[in-house]
């Protein structure tokens, strides 16, 4: 049953079978308004249109590109890359969904939005799918992460069948609604990251140019190969060198080695740029905070590369 908050008009999904007779009122997760739950026999009111209409489903399901930004090593620039790639694609005119699967919930912080709901509510089914999204920018929608995802992980871990498909199933309502779905993952290797790798078809690995990260890359490549065993459509599509610092001798050398292994999958590097670390504090993307900075230039290059169009954003 879908009930609508009379105050803010948002739609909530309620499982009637689990609702006892004693429960008479509901509290809206968005505005905190308390209101009586309509009984099933009551006159159905027309559900209002969603406040911020989603893009029309022009993109067909198969043309919707799903990209995970992932590496088990922490602090290599996953979130910075996911956010600025998604924002850049939206600026270039694509409809983009950014999914944050990290309990740190940093994507919303970086975009300066405070969503009331997100991936957790989608996966637990507490809200109808559209209500879980927040429109962060023109053409850019966010399905936010956050601490509550810990509960989702337990939920997945308890499943003894198709646990790895939980995220894919939860995201089916958005099939074909966007041109790109960019998924940010948490560091480490857990049930949610495995779910992401079963949902996406493309993987983008940000690699900071240090020995420790090469170690992480090796480990992650092995894990990726084991997922590919069950999910044959999954490909490592892009390796993005991050924190490139020409002053560090080893950074250049590692870059050369990686290029010789990954060849055409190697993307133009993202340089170390202090503007990239300042922008999140202002809730801005790098294009908004410092459009002329090396960081903005490098991420624009990455957007062109991923979209396969050199003309974009110029």
């Amino acid at each position: 049953m879908i009930i609508v908050c009379p105050s803010c008009k948002r739609q909530h999904k309620v499982d009637e079978s689990r609702l006892s007779d004693k429960v008479k009122a509901a509290k809206c997760v968005f505005c905190g308004h308390k209101f009586p739950i309509p009984k099933p026999g009551d006159v159905e009111t027309e559900p209002p249109a969603v406040a911020e209409a989603l893009p029309a489903a022009e993109a067909t399901a198969s043309s919707m590109r799903r990209i995970a930004v992932s590496l088990s090593k922490g602090g290599v620039g996953k979130t910075t890359t996911a956010v600025n790639l998604a924002a850049g694609l939206a600026l270039a005119g694509f409809n983009v969904l950014l999914v944050d699967t990290d309990t740190q919930g940093q994507a919303s912080y970086m975009l300066g939005v405070k969503p009331k709901a997100g991936l957790t509510e989608l996966m637990t089914g507490e809200l109808i799918p559209q209500e879980c999204l927040v429109k962060a920018r023109e053409r850019l929608w966010l399905l936010a992460g956050g601490r509550a995802l810990a509960g989702v992980k337990r939920l997945i871990a308890r499943k003894d069948f198709r646990g790895e498909m939980t995220l894919s199933e939860a995201l089916t309502p958005f099939e074909g609604q966007f041109d790109y779905v960019v998924v940010d993952t948490s560091p480490g290797w857990d049930v949610l990251t495995i779910n992401v790798l079963f949902y996406v078809r493309e993987v983008l690995i940000p690699v900071s140019l240090e020995v420790m990260t090469i170690q992480g890359l090796l480990e992650f490549s092995r894990s990726l190969a084991s997922v590919q065993n069950y999910h044959r459509d999954l490909t490592l599509k892009y390796v993005v060198p991050t924190f490139l610092d020409k002053r560090v001798k080893q950074s250049e050398e590692i870059l050369q080695q990686l290029t010789s292994y990954y060849n055409s999958r190697m993307c133009p590097p993202i340089r170390y740029n202090v503007r990239l670390s300042e922008a999140p504090g202002y809730g801005k993307t790098i294009y908004e905070y410092a459009p002329g900075s090396p960081g903005a230039k490098d991420y624009r290059d990455l957007v062109r590369r991923v979209a396969g169009n050199d003309e974009l954003l110029s």
Binding site: E164, V191, I194, S226
Partner: peptide, 19 residues
């Protein structure tokens, strides 16, 4: 939990690709 369990423990077989 079998696929998931194998993947979590790193026990899943690995395919042979250019990877």
């Amino acid at each position: 939990m079998d696929i998931m369990g194998a993947l979590l423990k790193g026990e899943a077989p690995k395919i042979t690709t250019e990877e």
